[in-house]
Amino acid sequence: MTSVRTRRERSRRPIDEYLLSEHQLEEMYYYILLARRLNERMLALNRQGRAAFVIAGAGQEAAQVGAAMALQKGVDFVAPYYRDLGVNLVLGMTAREAMLNLLGKRDDPNSHGRQMPAHWGSVARRVVTQSSVVTTQFPHAVGIALAAKLCKDPIVVMASCGEGSTSRGDFHESLNFAAIHHLPVIFFVENNGYAISERTEKEMPLEHVADRARGYGMQSAVVDGMDGIAVYQTVRPAVDQARRGGGPFLIEAKCYRLWPHSSDDDDSRYRPKKELEEWSRKDPVKLFRERVESDGIFPREDLDEIERRVEEEVREAAQWALMQPDPEPEDALTFVYREA
């Protein structure tokens, strides 16, 4: 299931070291499922007219969860992009907080109703605040890594984006600088096949984003992004290596955007039905459950129990969040500047 390509031969630790424990596998399934069920409920709230906008990560949950689980929570930084609900859940965002964020509620920890939904940010969880302008978070990730290097702090920064973002100048400037200064940054590209309506071949003349690493003398890998375990086993060695001073790494997770770009998009205008059907068979949520079930790692009842738990958590979170206070209008005037 895993395909790993690297530019140079590098000493790879035996894969056993990166085997996931039963507990970690359970955790992985929980987060993958939680991300999907939250996004489904969010879309339902949108269709009911209760949420103005949804931008989701359906099809990319395994990649997000697998990558985030390779990081040290509360130590490593993440500069995510708007589809990265799965990353945020692993780093500690609760279902309730995700719903507060969707509804732009006063107590949304990400921006307190100041940004569109799915624009993450948490100082405590080391999630860097982001804008809608894609790839602007990449230099931020590099700057954090540079600062940590100056302070001799052994942290790693993961910057993530979709493949569409890799066309922007900030992508190239960031990879270039990180490679020159040998900084501990994992550039994690969730290649979901589409930049809104534009297919990958309109975004780049290459099959793999990972091939762009060659231009920066950077190591890279391609991994099946529908397989959370493979993603973890690819990202984790790169994280460990970066922490030891081994420099940056570009990892491309091949995913698929199962949903339209956003709640305002109609993908039937540009996406062949057959293609969607084919990729739906590789739905990472379904795939993960099938795999752990057929491997006999978990009895069916245990997995059913996780599903029930997630369903209940999402239902409760939505109900609770809808009743939470909205921001006061005059709050729009506050925090333009930080007081000295």
Binding site: A79, P139, H140, G143, I144, L146, A147, F177
Partner: peptide, 15 residues
């Protein structure tokens, strides 16, 4: 690369 000079400063200041 001016965008990254400023963007990297943003990240470092955030840190």
């Amino acid at each position: 690369a001016e965008s990254s000079i400023i963007g990297i400063s943003v990240g470092a200041a955030h840190y």
